[in-house]
Design a binder for these strands. Structure first.
Lengths: 243, 243
DNA sequence: GGTCAATAAAGATTCGAAAGTTTGCCACTC
DNA sequence: GAGTGGCAAACTTTCGAATCTTTATTGACC
């Protein structure tokens, strides 16, 4: 029984699968075979299939007809594209949020930042990766920032891109080994600009924030040569140089 | 047997369903019941289901658990959001295309424009709507313009938004009854700017082009009060004021 | 040894009937 | 007459065996 999840079985499997991908329990490039999936999530082929179709449409897995599904492979090239897209779109959405957002939104951002500031960055048992709690708090903060934007299309687009970027964060080794970086300071500065309703500054700060993070990932990526290049069609999005 | 389509049955149904939605044979707001779908596309529940899951993820149909699938309802509010998103993102992508695109791309744009210019706008039997050929040529022209952008993420985003906008075009009554508008001229101007590699002007022209089209749709939309408001969750994207 | 074809195994896709959920209807009570 | 509860029909969701495609293996032939 897919214990977690929504009100249909398919939804439950979708949630679990997604969580396993984002939690790093399924590696990029890994093949997802139906017999295994059925055992792992105690479900039927049909449900697993629907979950995968949805994940494929969202870009988290890729597929070719009659060749099954694969966790989306990561690549330098894709990270570069993704980063540029986020720089442009997230800064635009944040700008709109600062313009449109009401006090409720502002309060939400302050609250999310409060939590983030007090959540410890490093995993206790594995100090190379950020802790799950920190990742969640970080995502929540950024989501809260963007959510002031009243254009649902742009908001949805920005969120989708951000989600995909979280995959790269999850799989980066030694994220945060860069001692020079003041992550907390960057977050605080963004929040300040937001509260002061300075749209231009907020947009500028988040651009830098995104670019910095991406550069960090790229710079330390060569440590781990286990990501495989899997050329794939369908979404037409991945094409694998190595991470 | 799903005669048209890809190499799997699901894909075939997906293509047909999508074509029926974009071809106006399925109305926005219309419920899609499995028994009917199975007859219409001579297929099984499973295949229809997967096709709908994919369409739902792309935003062309909406769903709530245990309440089936519905062709995405159109609304003024959504059109406004969509237009703003397209103005910002398509202009950005076109700018990048002008910067990055090679001569092959340029040639493709010229070719697509050549076809568009020579395709008649009005349907013979129903002069209120643009002809299918013109719609196809129009979409092809815009696709060709954007395709010079080397960032696959941004390109995919822009295309997805453009696709959704085509639904609104399909369902607008009297599109093109506005006599004042020189659609062909706008297209020609855009192409000129592209060929001259004037990124700023191209971006500006396409912004105007998108806004003009949207205004036209809004201004003549009240003619047809058959679009129903169906509040829906899942994609969180539609919420229906009327078109 | 290397190439190719036939065969076997593994896995993806498809189907339609069984189970579960929602919705509309009707009788009954207040 | 309005509101409530239960029943039946319609529809959605789920399942797993049957079918079909791809991939790996084996053996014959050049």
């Amino acid at each position: 029984m897919a214990s977690t999840g929504g009100s249909t079985r398919t939804d439950g499997v979708y949630q679990l699968l997604r969580a396993d991908i984002f939690g790093g329990r399924l590696e990029p490039g890994q093949r997802l075979k139906f017999p295994e999936l059925c055992v792992r999530y105690s479900t039927s082929v049909g449900a697993a299939r629907e979950a995968l179709v949805k994940l494929a449409a969202e870009g988290f897995v890729v597929t070719r007809p009659h060749q099954g599904y694969v966790v989306r492979p990561l690549s330098h090239e894709d990270l570069a594209d993704l980063t540029q897209a986020r720089v442009e779109i997230e800064s635009m959405v944040l700008r709109l949020a600062v313009q449109d957002g009401d006090m409720q939104w502002e309060a939400g951002a302050v609250a999310a930042h409060h939590v983030l500031e007090r959540t410890s960055f490093r995993k206790r048992e594995d100090p190379d990766h950020p802790s799950d709690e920190w990742s969640a708090a970080h995502a929540a903060f950024h989501t809260a920032l963007l959510s002031g934007c009243s254009n649902r299309r742009l908001l949805a687009t920005a969120r989708a891109l951000r989600h995909e970027a979280e995959l790269y964060l999850q799989w980066s080794v030694s994220f945060g080994n860069e001692p020079a970086r003041d992550l907390a300071g960057e977050h605080r500065a963004i929040l300040e600009a937001v509260v002061e309703r300075d749209a231009d500054r907020a947009a500028e700060l988040i651009r830098d924030h995104i670019v910095h993070t991406a550069q960090l990932l790229i710079s330390c990526a060569s440590d781990e040569p286990n990501r495989v290049a899997v050329p794939v069609a369908d979404t037409g999005v991945a094409d694998g140089t190595r991470l």
